[in-house]
Nucleic acid binder design. Structure first.
Lengths: 224, 224
DNA sequence: TAGATTGTTAATCGATTAACAATC
DNA sequence: TAGATTGTTAATCGATTAACAATC
């Protein structure tokens, strides 16, 4: 892939990219990788859309925000498009991630295989319970007391953090992550956290996901 | 709260409710419950919006899809609005949920405190590894082989399921859940699953959440 | 060439916001 | 009453879809 196939910088020429577009990009990538495993070498916008429940026009428009990746009459070459989307998302490199919170959820995140496959490695995990930390590495991952966050985060050039602590502790943990230069936080605590400008957040509240599901079960067909 | 404050059925009179509205409803509920803990008895659309980063108009419009819950000049009474939103979402009752998959993530879900607080109880957990099942209950929760899904699901009147199995197994598990009458599936496997009409799904892909975060870190400010 | 499919423009559709009469 | 705030309408804004010339 040559740089020329990419637009200068997404946003500079075309205004900001809608969040919905970016979230579909991840789904395209996942589907493309699955297709590639199945031996597929090219795919049309129509087929990719069908597999995910989108229109062909939407697939093409989404990709067109970022450049010209397709071949008229042919479609998209899977490997090429995978590389392109990874690069757009920033996951053509592996990101070191800090995890805070070593309860059930934190431990599950440590064991989660899916991160490595998509360009993320948890390189350090923190808790504020000395007993938990003293129990030593989990799956070879070093554990630290939260007080050691500054050194460890800087040594590992950590820009992304995951918060898996109880709700009441989340804001304070977020503040400490921001203080050591973390630029993005994936928050699993069931509270809204406030972050300064320039720090991104994605919130995942497991109970809310079930709640959304419940609404659509109870109100079958009453959503857009 | 009297029934009269609710519109007949969301959707019948006003067309389908946008998904985005429903997802904000969950955030309103979470924020209201947090406010109530802090002793707040009423809240205005302006304040609720400010806490979550929405406009006051949006808050009022979202709630107005479902009825008249506010008091002009006063705002909303927290307890009343909490009850109303729970009822809208369907979480004014507790839902029994089946969990399939007893790896790291499945076990974390069993231990997750947040579900009970929001109206969900995992009442049975399944795996297809007999060794895992034989190891016996986890936190008092009975474990079953997946082959026992039909009896157990029917005995417990289970309508919601969570899938926490590896990607390649997810579709087959989904099919089995649907076969026993499950109406909504929360899918943690990193694949798109196909379900028949009339069965809802919400997908949570942890790696995709990190990916979305990464994009916004790399393209600071370039999203809507 | 004929058939397929892209990237892009214009039209449509839907969601958000601003404004304000009604209400407490 | 004056001040605050709702529910709702109309205006704005943004995202999706349809259509099609260009391309392979």
């Amino acid at each position: 892939m040559s740089d020329a196939e990419f637009k200068p910088t997404p946003g500079e020429t075309d205004g900001p990219v809608p969040k919905a577009v970016v979230s579909r990009l991840s789904l395209y990538l996942r589907q493309l990788q699955q297709g590639l495993l199945g031996g597929q070498t090219t795919i049309s916008s129509k087929e990719l859309g069908r597999l995910l429940g989108f229109t062909d026009a939407q697939v093409r428009k989404d990709l067109a925000y970022f450049g010209h990746f397709g071949y008229p009459g042919i479609g998209y070459k899977c490997e090429e498009l995978i590389s392109a989307v990874k690069r757009i998302l920033g996951t053509d490199q592996t990101w070191p991630v800090a995890l805070v919170g070593l309860g059930n959820l934190g431990r599950a995140l440590i064991g989660y295989k899916g991160f490595a496959q998509r360009g993320f490695t948890i390189v350090a995990a923190f808790d504020n319970d000395p007993g938990v930390v003293a129990a030593g590495p989990i799956d070879g991952l070093p554990l630290y007391h939260l007080d050691n966050l500054p050194e460890v985060a800087r040594q590992n050039r950590i820009r992304l953090g995951m918060i898996a602590v109880p709700g009441p502790a989340a804001q304070s943990v977020a503040d400490r992550l921001v203080a050591v230069g973390v630029e993005g936080i994936l928050n699993f605590a069931p509270v809204t956290i406030k972050l300064p400008e320039g720090v991104s957040q994605v919130g995942v509240d497991l109970a809310i996901e079930l709640e959304q599901l419940t609404f659509s079960v109870v109100n079958r067909g009453a959503t857009t």
